[in-house]
Design a protein around this nucleic acid. Sequence first.
DNA 1: AATACAGGTAGTTTTTAAGATACTTACTTT
DNA 2: AAAGTAAGTATCTTAAAAACTACCTGTATT
Lengths: 112, 112
Amino acid sequence: MEVKNKQQGIKVVADVLDIVGGKWRGQILAHLCDNPKRFNELKTVLSRITSSTLTKELRYLEDIKMVERKIIQETPMIVEYRLTKHGMSIKDLIKTIVEWGLKHRAIVFKKD
Amino acid sequence: MEVKNKQQGIKVVADVLDIVGGKWRGQILAHLCDNPKRFNELKTVLSRITSSTLTKELRYLEDIKMVERKIIQETPMIVEYRLTKHGMSIKDLIKTIVEWGLKHRAIVFKKD
DNA sequence: AATACAGGTAGTTTTTAAGATACTTACTTT
DNA sequence: AAAGTAAGTATCTTAAAAACTACCTGTATT
């Protein structure tokens, strides 16, 4: 797929980064790439996130249909978050980000 | 290249998004993918950015060695910004972002 | 009976990013 | 001589993102 309209193409960068950017969204999506996770599992792997922030981010990702919330069991309550079918499409992008990051960290993440 | 350490891999997502994320960095890098641009060219294509923000973002991108500032001519002053050799490596990532965005915009950017 | 876990919500405060406004130096054009 | 261009800098303010603290319902554990 070629980029037809360059201006349009470049604006879309900002839109995508709105979804995947910020402090937590990319990481949440990355964790959900592997397999579905429960609220507290996410909270544990994202060790510094607070409940309220995690809730907000998950609700946003639900709103844009990237993630779905599934109540697995009512009592005791088990809730699972997973990528939607559509959300799965982000996997390759996340993979590209991770690969670039691992390859270039030595140069670029050096805060001297 | 396979991701060896998953935890490490996922943290790197946040580091990369720090470089490419925010309101302007991704767009600046995207514009510089095509060819070098002068300060005011960038200011024009990023139509809503202010001088001070553009300067800040460019200095940051210089600091991390993604972009270099080159004085082409002292008088009258001509300054050009271009991707460093290392910065060029971001092109594929930007391309992946643009392609994902163009393909999925209909579903995901719909704010109803 | 008390404590802890699961999955949150509500309200406030702090931090960070971005924007607004004004000004600068050195040159060039009218 | 005045105005305009190029490439910025310096402050200050605003807005948005994230954090902090406390609390809630229902179940399970000690």
